[in-house]
């Protein structure tokens, strides 16, 4: 599988549009049900309206071992409010009444496995989800998962990491559709001040093994980070920084405003992104 995914989902279309207009994409992550599914619906609409190109909707899990403190706390709040995978799929259905923003479900594997792969894929498709990323699932353990999700026209997005060899990056990209999610550094999710020095090299390695769009995540929070990725990545994934806005907000309305502002600032930096393609890297640069 190479190039834009064979099954032309909302995700592939959006990346094709971004490429055509020379823009970098912003993938916005929030945890579903934090603090309630109704609030998440409002947040998603605010994110989409502010220009988020893809929304990653986190399915809360009791043991989020790939997540840092910010998303751990969001998962706890979401579980406390009674959020289930079935509830998250219901939310996807609701947002599709008013928005066609590309949607990726971001989950740990066990909730999906317990629902049953076939039942999950069928429900996700009919709700209107576009892709799925399971944090603790790699190509080796995912043959059946990929087959079933593909049959339901869902993109399967896998993670590439700084520790992945070139051979593995090729394998991961081969199992992915929609885009390849590249982890910027070894570690868990969470905002950091600076991007790692070896990120450009990792991006070049990934670029050499796939034609898929590449989104970079983990540790990206500021317009400056997005700016630095210009010309290197097709999209930046921002998660913990947005979840922090939700955590800080005094009300759902205030949270929606803060999310929208944050995404607009990121988008502003991203619009200047691809103009710098092939240009030399300027480390630590800020948004122009």
């Amino acid at each position: 599988m190479s190039g834009i995914a064979a099954n032309s989902t909302r995700i592939s279309k959006r990346f094709a549009e971004l490429r055509a207009s020379g823009e970098m994409g912003i993938v916005a992550y929030i945890t579903a049900g934090d603090p309630s599914l109704d609030a998440t619906l409002k947040y998603m609409l605010a994110l989409a309206e502010a220009g988020a190109d893809v929304i990653e909707l986190g399915v809360p899990f009791s043991d989020p071992l790939a997540d840092g403190p910010t998303i751990q706390r969001a998962s706890e709040r979401a579980l406390k409010s009674g959020t289930t995978l079935a509830g998250v799929l219901g939310l996807v259905h609701r947002i599709r009444q008013s928005s066609q923003v590309p949607l990726v479900l971001f989950s740990y594997y066990n909730p999906i496995l317990q629902m049953g792969l076939e039942k999950f894929a069928s429900a996700a498709e009919s709700a209107g989800a576009d892709g799925v990323l399971a944090t603790d699932l790699t190509p080796e353990e995912s043959e059946e998962y990929r087959r079933i999700l593909a049959a339901h026209h869902l993109d399967t997005i896998f993670l590439g990491a700084p520790t992945s060899t070139d051979e593995r990056l090729a394998k991961i990209a081969g199992c992915s559709s929609g885009f390849l999610y590249l982890i910027s550094r070894t570690g868990v999710t969470g905002a950091k001040d600076a991007l790692p020095d070896d990120l450009p090299a990792l991006l070049r390695r990934a670029r050499s093994v796939t034609q898929l769009p590449i989104a970079v995540g983990f540790g990206i929070s500021l317009p400056g980070h997005v700016s630095v990725l210009g010309g290197l990545a097709d999209a930046a994934v921002v998660g913990s920084a947005l979840v922090s806005e939700i955590e800080r907000a005094k009300s759902v309305e205030a949270g929606a405003v803060a999310l929208a502002e944050h995404v607009r600032a990121l988008k502003e930096a991203a619009r200047h992104g691809l103009s710098r393609r092939e240009a030399p890297m300027h480390r630590g640069g800020v948004a122009p």
């Binding site: 594997y109 603790d136 353990e141 896998f158 590439g160 700084p162 520790t163």
Partner: peptide
């Protein structure tokens, strides 16, 4: 999953395997 026989490394019947974030695979 329970029914499918597997020859993947580290399996005890259907159990075991390697379900970790990619960073830990190598």
């Amino acid at each position: 999953i329970l029914q499918s026989p597997t020859t993947a490394p580290g399996r005890f019947g259907p159990y075991g395997g390697r379900y970790v974030p990619e960073t830990l695979m190598v």
